[in-house]
Nucleic acid binder design. Structure first.
Lengths: 221, 221
DNA sequence: TCCGAGGCTGAACAAGCGTTTAATGTATTG
DNA sequence: CAATACATTAAACGCTTGTTCAGCCTCGGA
């Protein structure tokens, strides 16, 4: 039984897994339109073998999605069980390890689809629970609509990074750790400013909108 | 001279312009990977004619980019000279007219490139000038770094819409006016809340960060 | 009236794509 | 050892793509 190993001795990964990893790397670096031939070349196999193992390119994408989703899940689980003392700052330094993963995630998010929605919904749920905790602890102000505030904040945070990466994408290979370092360096201050002190001086716009939604103007419809 | 018109009498647009408009519509609806044949069919011409007029598909993209850029410029100019009384609300109602334009812009922004960067930089500049005006008028709080705050706010606002559209993109044809109406309905309240009242109760995080950047910890480097 | 330039078409071309297929090697099983 | 199953490959297939080409039609100018 134990001698019935099909794992090649020179590599510690199955050929199938090597193809999958090569595909994730290629999708991340060159976009989701990358050819099966390019993936095969990177994995050191023939194009036919890729199809032989995964049936089709679409299914290969699906397998990559599932794998990335699971790796993200494991990373998240580990970061919960091993809470780092520095919080975000430390995790920013660990980003280099996952830059390939992030590149793939970025491409997947650009395209939309199941993986995007699933991860985004998970992110929204996380933000909402964090905010709820903050409200209970007294560090975060309560909201008139906590669920929508969480969605809005998640869309802001994630979307701003998406925009930053997209705009900085002229060179072929976007360096995600660099982009995220830039993001930290440039935007933490204005974000903390606005989140702490607000943006508007007076309440006229907010109060005006609250009146507006409680008594919407009649229109032709 | 005046009789030397080449414009077909049944249509008020040149064939070239009709192809261009069809291309913008197709790019917006079906993505930037849409085929030349689909564009030709929509314009009611043969695929060869598209190339005959524009040389290549890449150049057609460029012409579309330039055209969209100019239309955006003219809309902006008009909205400055004819400031609507209702401000944003009125412009939200005018969005239906430009939903095709917005679809193209969305696709272009997803891909990155010259048009994206140009329009994004223009947007950042607009936000910065609006904020500056608000600060002078006393409606917007001053910032320790106005330029970066403007960039952050622009990335947030634009990125959040980008995320919303991307996530809501399972059906083939994203209805942009609907997405933007959703955005208005769901996120104006939390946005005004946070911008008016802030998100955090106390200043510990902001003050902590201000100390951190004025006296960064020594690290191995 | 004739001519020629240019808008325009339908068919074809060359390249690239994902995928299939037949064949070869290789290891495990009976 | 023979047989079976599987990993693997090179070549080719069918399809779609952007683009080209030869010829048609139309219309303004001499």
């Amino acid at each position: 039984m134990s001698s019935r190993r099909k794992v090649p001795p020179d590599e510690d990964l199955t050929t199938r897994a090597r193809i999958r990893d090569a595909a994730i790397a290629c999708f991340g670096e060159k976009g989701l339109g990358v050819t099966v031939r390019a993936i095969a070349e990177r994995a050191g196999v023939s194009p036919g073998l890729v199809i032989h193992h995964f049936g089709s390119k679409a299914n290969l994408r699906k397998v990559c999605d599932d794998h990335v989703r699971q790796v993200v899940y494991e990373i998240k689980k580990e970061s919960v069980s091993h809470p780092s003392s520095d919080g975000m700052l430390r995790s920013l330094k660990e980003i280099d390890k996952y830059s390939g993963l992030l590149a793939y995630l970025f491409r997947a998010m650009q395209e939309g689809g199941e993986l995007s929605r699933h991860l985004y919904e998970a992110m929204v749920a996380d933000v909402e629970s964090y905010l709820e905790l903050g409200v209970r602890e007294g560090t975060v102000r309560p909201s008139r609509d906590p669920a929508r505030r969480a969605r809005w904040l998640a869309a802001n945070g994630f979307g701003s990074i998406l925009v930053l990466v997209t705009m900085q994408q002229d060179t072929e290979n976007p360096d995600f750790s660099q982009v995220l370092r830039d993001w930290e360096e440039q935007y933490v201050l204005p974000a903390l400013e606005v989140y702490t002190e607000g943006l508007l001086v007076d309440r006229t716009m907010l109060d005006g909108y609250l009146v507006y939604i409680s008594d919407p103007p009649e229109e032709e419809r």
